[in-house]
Each structure stands twice: as C-alpha cells, then as structure tokens.
Amino acid sequence: MQDDEAAALYRLMTWLSPSFPVGAFSYSSGIEWAMEAGDIVDANSLRDWLVSMLADGPGFCDGVFLAHTHRTASSLDAAGLRDIAELAAAFVPSRERYLETSAQGRAFIEIARAAWNCDGLDQLISHCDGAVVYPVAVGLVSAAHAIALASTMHAFLHALASNWISAGARLVPLGQTDSQRVLAQLEPIVVATGKRALAASLDDIGSATFRADLASMRHETQYTRLFRS
C-alpha cells in the first residue's frame, strides 16, 4: 500500500468510526418509534427494516448526494455544489431527520476544519451557502482530501448501517452477537446500494420507505424517548 493510500484509509476509518464525535449515537432515524409500534421486535425484523432503509430510502438517497457532492467539489464547481447542498437539505422528509442530518453534517465539518484541515476545504464549504447535511459534508471533505469516491461511499454506508444497528441493539434489545449477524447480513445490501448510488444521476433519487418516513415524523411526539430522532 502506498503512503497516500494508507493515509486515505486512516482518515476514512477515523471519520466514519462510531467514535468520531458527530453525535450519531443520539439518533435512531425513526427506529425508536418503529420498535414501540411493533414493527421491529427482534434481529430479523430489524434487518428487514434496515434493508429497506438502505436500498429504497435514505441510504441510497444519501449515497447519491455524497457521490455528486464529491464529484462536484473535485471539479471546483461552486454553483453546482451549492445546488446539490440545497437539494440534499430539502430532500429530508421530516423535521427530526433534518435536525439529525444537519447537526451531524455541521459537526463533521467543524471537526474536519479543526483537526483535518487542508488547502481548499474552507473555500468548498463556503460554496454551500447554507445547511450542510451529513452526506454532503462527507462528500465535500473526502473530495478536499482527494480520497477516492468509491472507498468513501462504502465506508459511509457501512457507518450508516452500523449506527442504525447500534440504535436497534439498545432498543430491542439485541446482544452483540445478534448485532454482528445483522451487520454481516447487510453486507451485500451495502455493496449493491453503493454501486447503484455511484452510477445514479440526481434524477434517479427517490425513496419508497413510507413507514420509515412516518416513523421519523411520529417520533417527535412519542411519549418516552431515548433518542433525538
């Protein structure tokens, strides 16, 4: 492995680790409500819920936004970057999901600036001219550091799946072994979703996870909550 490849892998492993302080542990993306409603009751139902979220919902959509942000930032297209950032923020289906993804995006940008700054990063951030949601933040910073898009994509989707499983493990609850089984079973879905997102245009963006969208809306009025979304 060349030095630049090793450095890129080191950064991706750091930025998309559960320990990277973007507050991901505070959010469940509606999984908390789905558990209370009886949609998620065990490892199998959690897996099925996450397959839909990855392949037909926010996983795929966020992947497309990440890919187009990375390519647009790499080509230094200021107007295009602003348009993608605006579209990605507008596409979020509920208030709580918007708070979740914008807070994580803001934290990711702030930490990248403080600890992992590089030439051109501040300029790229300024082009967004508004809220920077999480997939846009990851695409923008990885492009500024010249980290390969395909590697960034798969690391990002793995992090999404891991965070969702972590929420499910605390809510169902699941043991560590069952959590790892779910993550292993999601591997082909993560790989396939990443490939689709890399090949997709912005016109291909669409979601069909209506129950998950409703969950993220209804969580806001849930009586007892452990998570912020």
Rank of each mutant, 00 (worst) to 15 (best):
72 T>V: 00
216 S>F: 05
69 T>Y: 00
218 R>W: 14
183 L>C: 07
17 S>W: 00
164 W>Q: 08
224 T>L: 14
194 G>I: 04
42 D>C: 01
20 F>M: 02
108 F>P: 03
118 C>N: 05
3 D>Y: 08
167 A>G: 10
180 Q>C: 11
109 I>N: 01
23 G>H: 01
67 A>P: 00
226 L>V: 14
225 R>L: 13
65 F>Y: 11
177 T>K: 11
156 F>V: 01
20 F>W: 03
124 L>M: 12
50 L>E: 04
94 S>I: 09
163 N>I: 06
101 T>L: 09
139 G>R: 00
131 A>V: 10
91 F>S: 12
126 S>C: 04
160 L>N: 02
148 A>Y: 03
190 V>Q: 04
136 V>K: 04
51 V>N: 01
122 D>K: 08
99 L>H: 14
66 L>A: 03
1 M>H: 15
109 I>T: 02
9 L>Y: 13
162 S>D: 12
64 V>L: 08
47 R>W: 04
107 A>P: 01
134 Y>H: 09
125 I>C: 03
130 G>C: 00
196 R>M: 11
75 S>P: 00
159 A>M: 09
100 E>V: 12
11 R>V: 04
198 L>H: 09
215 A>M: 11
105 G>C: 07
211 R>L: 12
62 D>I: 06
121 L>N: 09
197 A>C: 09
44 N>E: 13
85 A>T: 00
134 Y>E: 01
107 A>S: 07
142 S>H: 06
131 A>R: 06
62 D>G: 13
17 S>E: 00
163 N>L: 04
33 W>G: 05
205 I>T: 13
69 T>C: 02
